[in-house]
Write a protein that binds this DNA or RNA. Structure first.
Lengths: 121, 121
DNA sequence: CTAAAGCTTCACGCCGACGTGAGAGTCAAG
DNA sequence: CTTGACTCTCACGTCGGCGTGAAGCTTTAG
């Protein structure tokens, strides 16, 4: 498929998809015309990219992680042990972020409860 | 207390504390010398600010929310109902973000499990 | 054949929560 | 009085994941 269809199927913009390639996250084949040609599996890859980006991982880290994710759901062992340490750190960061988000949500819940009480009086 | 102590007690930098004031989140008293003088309660306020900032809320939204949080833990009803709608939207955003973080963590867990398997073989 | 999509490569713009000096005034201790 | 720690106000710099044209080539529909 070409970039427009991939964009539709993933929700990413074309600009984002080109940016991912520029960062080494995608390596689409090229038609003689210069058009990018994507494989079906790239739809899932883009999904993973966006999830990891949303979790605060940088493109360089994602570029190291993606090769560990085989197309069929199989997992390949990470190349170097340093990467494992980095991933453990990222994992800890994410867990911390989840906890912070939960407490932020609790703050909002408290305020909203008071607001609803006030409007029902 | 002055800005240096507040910075130490909150983990925020002095620059951040001045920025919060600039955005209307803190209103420290001023000494004749021009030095900022903070109250003890500001320690907790800064904690709330940082939690909400980490959750992706902008300073302008936080500025509207803070007046609803009384010093003693009491909650005041939000001033306007539009704010309530906005907070509900933010709450939904946060819940979505938590879900995304969880799935990102799951991805990392899968990769790390494969890596540990490989190193124990 | 023609027009309208769709695709290409630059390359500058953006945003928001600060970082980072610069230059100068203030305060406590010896 | 002096020194060093602390504070003040500008004001430009940063960072990263894109947004947004601009100018031009390719493909598709009619």
């Amino acid at each position: 498929m070409r970039i427009g269809e991939l964009a539709r199927r993933t929700g990413a913009t074309q600009r984002a998809l080109r940016y991912y390639e520029e960062q080494g996250l995608l390596r689409p084949h090229r038609q003689p015309s210069g058009y990018r040609e994507y494989a079906d599996v790239d739809v899932r890859t883009v999904g993973s990219i966006r999830t990891l980006l949303a979790a605060g991982l940088g493109t360089s880290v994602i570029a190291e992680v993606l090769p560990c994710m085989a197309p069929d759901g199989e997992l390949l062992p990470p190349s170097c042990p340093e990467l494992l340490d980095g991933l453990a750190a990222e994992r800890a960061r994410i867990s911390g972020a989840i906890a912070e988000l939960a407490s932020a949500r609790a703050i909002l819940d408290g305020i909203m409860a008071a607001g609803i009480d006030a409007s029902s009086n």
